[in-house]
Design a protein around this nucleic acid. Structure first.
Lengths: 325, 325
DNA sequence: CTAGGTGCAAATAATTTGCAGAGGC
DNA sequence: GCCTCTGCAAATTATTTGCACCTAG
């Protein structure tokens, strides 16, 4: 965590002064893992400096919120709790009413549905709060679970990386199959090129995944943080299946376009969520790469349609779909 | 609303006394539509009786919560609001940070995902809070929307009835098609019978839907309350499509079983949600009917497998699936 | 030297509680 | 008559603020 102080300096708003008290409070706060009440934090601070008052803790908490270091969360207890947002994406909560602990998760599926609901109601969403209240495993069974949660940053990186890898695998499958099936020579070359790129990128991602595992030996056995059904077999899996059923060159390109678009959107969404960390890099790089593929495919699609129009082949009932970025 | 008082009497817990003050507070509360703070309610009460104190309002609110008349909701404003739960299913909220109004919705899709998340984390969910904070249409565009929300009870009944009707339509399609395709005479008769039942039930549901519309002429144009993608074309739609692709008698029964089970679950889930109202009747009746169909199909399935086992036809690689309720 | 930052004590805001009297059953 | 309900005022809890003093830039 050596970059923490650099991060803090960068976030210090203009016209604010350094102060030993504040630094102490911020540091103690960032050292904690869970969701603290103002009083929890006050007690912790008091252990290191008897002379800090409650008011200062409250004021610093407010300052941290404005600075984007802390997020205020409300678990319906009649007082607020705070979680730090440094390398800690926005997420949802499971809240145990027995032990008052809370667990974090994210669901791409739910987030997509939330967007649909908001849009159906002509509502502009800014932030969503989702809490599942109930009883955790430990409180129900009376003994500690085999593996604890671990840090959110690592879990998030792990899950997104898994999705990225599955996507690359299915993309590789898709493009190499498409290259085999495509009759049009130019289109085939495009698919071959993309297949090579997916292959290369896949290698990189797998290396990153290994690095991640090295940081926490139990990482693979920790519970899921990011739920995303659509990506279980990769975002290209459905496309690859469609290819097997037989499609023409134009359709193959269109399927590729849809898959790349889904993939780009996914990585853009979650890349943006990271405040500042290695994870952000991975996802945004990925999103950019997918966007380039997408644009390449769209150009190819347009070119193919144009060539077919000039040299019409079989009859065609409807005008071919027009792709958009 | 003439059954309100009967409802209240039934909910009055043992060892509690009638009191004019309390009755007044409860009645004023139930007359309101939105989400009131304790103070909003106090102000309203004060208009009718100057001599009621804040403490009594708070105490009555607590009593109403215990009695199941009111639900405490927390929109993160630092104080609680209350909504009445009489004929008012649990739901989620869209909260406008500009005008502080809130809008209600429900999503079967999201609820299903929430259950999956909880189960993946070995968490026993008791209640979920879902709030989308943002800006409502009126605040964004500066003018009132064409049609307002209406009462939740009617909207819920409307949406669930639409889903029920779509389900019956697709069920009818499924069973009549299955009856045409089934070679086994006994199986065919089962499908014919179910087809007739769906037909009859469909008529009933459509009549109920018309009654609902009579209660609110704008009902059809009001925004969606209950979101459920899976049911857009009815819960049997996918099954009917599979039939078209060609299946044998046993597979047709199995598809029917799956569809009935999905349908039973859906109506059970939302029927249970209604505290007490006509809607509850509709859904629970429906759930019961679907359950009976389900059991009939399972019996038939077992009988068919048994007959086929005794008089083996073609070779079969795997043992046929065993259905469960 | 001056705009913040800090401690202390008092203020606020929502909600709860102790207590004595009022009123159902 | 007993037990619950009610009003009033005081208490409680989480959080904020006024003010005098302190300190970094």
């Amino acid at each position: 965590m050596q970059s923490t102080s650099a991060f803090l300096d960068s976030l210090r708003p203009a016209g604010s002064k350094r102060s030993g008290k504040r630094d102490l409070i911020v540091n103690v706060f960032l050292r904690q893992e869970g969701h603290l009440t103002a009083d929890d934090l006050y007690d912790l601070i008091r252990k290191e400096d008897q002379k800090i008052s409650r008011a200062t803790v409250y004021r610093t908490l407010q300052w941290m919120e404005e600075a984007g270091i802390a997020r205020k969360v409300d678990f319906g207890e009649g007082r607020f709790r705070f979680e730090h947002s440094y390398r800690h994406p926005r997420h949802f909560h499971l809240i145990c009413k027995t032990c008052n602990r809370s667990f974090e998760f994210l669901s791409s599926d739910i987030e997509a549905l939330l967007e649909e609901v908001a849009s159906a109601r002509n509502f502009t969403p800014r932030q969503s709060i989702l809490q599942i209240h109930g009883t955790c495993e430990a409180c129900r069974t009376g003994r500690a679970p085999a593996v604890e949660g671990g840090t959110t940053e690592l879990l998030f990186a792990r899950d997104a990386l898994r999705i990225a890898i599955a996507t690359e695998r299915s993309g590789l499958e898709f493009y190499s199959r498409a290259a085999r099936l495509t009759k049009d020579a130019r289109g085939r070359r495009v698919f071959e090129r993309l297949s090579d790129e997916e292959q290369e990128h896949l290698g990189k991602l797998e290396a990153r995944y290994k690095e991640l595992l090295a940081q926490d030996p139990l990482l693979e056995s920790r519970p899921t943080f990011l739920f995303f059904k659509g990506a279980a077999n990769g975002l290209f899996a459905a496309g690859a299946e469609q290819l097997a059923k037989g499609v023409d060159d134009r359709q193959a390109l269109m399927i590729g376009i849809r898959c790349e678009r889904a993939s780009h959107r996914f990585f853009k969404r979650y890349g943006d969520r990271f405040e500042d960390s290695e994870g952000k890099q991975i996802f945004l790089e990925f999103a950019t790469e997918e966007r380039e593929h997408l644009e390449l495919l769209i150009r190819e699609y347009r070119a193919l349609v144009e060539r077919q129009r000039r040299r019409p082949g079989g009859r065609r009932k409807t005008r071919p779909e027009q792709p958009t970025a």
